[in-house]
């Protein structure tokens, strides 16, 4: 499986990362190298092996349904680049 510039563009789009042409060229080489290298896993026989989702094998602890209010609106918005009237503000989204 080899990566060409349209794949790099598509993946960059999915990841929402702007890349310029120079970066694109470098990434094609690097990603091909890395993916070629990890491709050696294909040689490992994994028939009848269950995928390992986590090394954590204790059951999931559940929480009681209690509502808390630990943060106020100003804390939530404090780090935001743009806010107004208690809202986060972003360029208009077209639906």
């Amino acid at each position: 499986m080899s990566i060409d510039n349209s794949t790099v563009k598509k993946v960059a789009k999915l990841a929402r990362i702007e890349i310029n042409e120079e970066e694109e060229t470098t990434l094609i080489t690097e990603l091909n190298n890395i993916l070629g290298w990890v491709d050696e896993l294909q040689q490992v026989n994994t028939d009848s092996v269950e995928p390992m989702l986590s090394v954590f094998n204790e059951s999931m602890q559940m929480r009681e349904d209690q509502a808390e209010s630990n943060f106020d609106n100003s804390q939530i918005l404090d780090n935001s680049p743009e806010s107004n009237a208690g809202f986060f503000v972003v360029p208009k989204v077209v639906e």
């Binding site: 990566i3 794949t7 999915l14 993916l35 896993l41 490992v44 269950e50 995928p51 390992m52």
Partner: peptide, 20 residues
């Protein structure tokens, strides 16, 4: 890339199995 459609099984799922 390794999670995207068409590559998930070959890369990500495979890696989870090898991790096992």
């Amino acid at each position: 890339y390794v999670l995207s459609a068409g590559y998930y099984d070959a890369y990500y799922l495979k890696a989870l199995k090898v991790r096992k």
